[in-house]
């Protein structure tokens, strides 16, 4: 009975989601191995070996793992699966893309986006944009799982001392080719892991007006997010979107500015510790989840708030 965590990494470093996933894996109570499949990923593998609780790191290194394409990774994991009873990945875009492919190769029904582990075979996951919770039991011979990172507190990145075992790569399948990646660079903290998130909605009216939120974010060391309406209107890039189909965040403080609070938006932020809503419409549904609501014109309230900090 052993668990394999599929690490999300950039070859150089582990992504934060990997630490949350290892934490969830440790809750299952079996020895935890971590797979780092990449290209020139020695640093990431080394980093994984230091994570508290990790028993061993399996490191596969080959050019066709450089971008961690699902087709290549799935074949490798399918092969490794014989030695493990549980396979577990983060429910990030990376894990969502990969894990079901692995599950289908193994003919196993996966359970994705787990919020809580009830027992060895029973898990809680959100359905209907988090408006209901389903407790699901698997009786499959193996468990193939993905976990929502914000629901599991990260295990310590340092203090462990696992062995790193080099494993052989599988032959490349080359079904798809990586062409390019266009990542928004920002000095701000990553949206998914930030302590404070300030999100703007359609009420901001333009991309320029997001600069007001930037000024506030500078003061609070915050990441900036947005509603779908703000993204669709082109105010900010796609990856700012918080919600059912965007990022799931659960910061200490979430400030929603000019956002009405559609269920699809709430799905991405309602587990935040403290929620502040600033909206000029007192009936906006966002106030139903807000700990502190301010009914005000954001064009006055935001500069005033920035000045007060």
């Amino acid at each position: 009975m052993t668990t394999l965590v599929i690490a999300e990494h950039s070859n150089l470093t582990l992504r934060a989601s990997t630490l949350n996933t290892i934490a969830a894996a440790l809750q299952l109570g079996e020895p935890v191995s971590v797979l780092v499949a990449g290209y020139g990923a020695d640093m990431a593998a080394q980093e994984a070996s230091l994570v508290v609780g990790v028993h061993q790191v399996l490191h596969a290194d080959a050019p066709h793992y450089a971008e961690q394409l699902a087709e290549e990774m799935a074949v490798l994991i399918q092969k490794l699966a014989t030695d493990f009873t549980t396979l577990i990945a983060p429910a990030t875009v990376f894990g969502r893309n990969l894990l079901p492919r692995v599950a289908a190769l193994l003919d196993i029904a996966p359970i994705t986006d787990i919020l809580a582990i009830e027992s060895n075979d029973t898990f809680v996951r959100p359905i209907y944009a988090g408006n209901a919770l389903a407790k699901v039991q698997t009786l499959e011979t193996k468990k193939v799982l993905s976990v929502r990172p914000t629901s599991f507190e990260a295990t310590a990145a340092q203090g462990g001392n696992a062995s790193v075992v080099k494993i052989e790569a599988c032959a490349a399948v080359r079904l798809s080719q990586f062409k390019s990646r266009d990542l928004a660079s920002s000095d701000r903290p990553e949206l998914a892991g930030a302590r404070v998130v300030i999100s703007g909605g359609r009420g901001l009216q333009s991309g320029e007006n997001f600069q007001m939120l930037e000024a506030l974010a500078d003061k609070l060391g915050a990441a900036i997010g947005a509603s779908r309406a703000a993204v669709d209107a082109g105010y900010v890039p796609n990856d700012y979107q918080v919600g059912q189909t965007g990022k799931i965040v659960a910061p200490e403080l979430y400030i929603a500015v000019g956002i009405s609070g559609a269920v699809q938006h709430l799905a991405g932020m309602k587990d935040s510790k403290v929620i502040v809503a600033i909206n000029k419409d007192p009936d906006a549904p966002i106030f139903q989840v807000a700990d502190y609501g301010l009914v005000a014109d954001l064009f006055q309230a935001i500069p005033e708030l920035t000045a007060a900090l």
Binding site: A132, A134, V136, P282, V289, L305, A308
Partner: peptide
């Protein structure tokens, strides 16, 4: 189906918040 849904329940509700009257009070 291969998985068994044991229970579907409402998510926990957040405790009700308050409305503040000014930016000063919010801060």
């Amino acid at each position: 189906p291969r998985l068994k849904t044991l229970l579907v329940s409402d998510p926990p509700v957040r405790k009700p918040g308050i409305v503040v009257n000014s930016v000063t009070e919010l801060v």
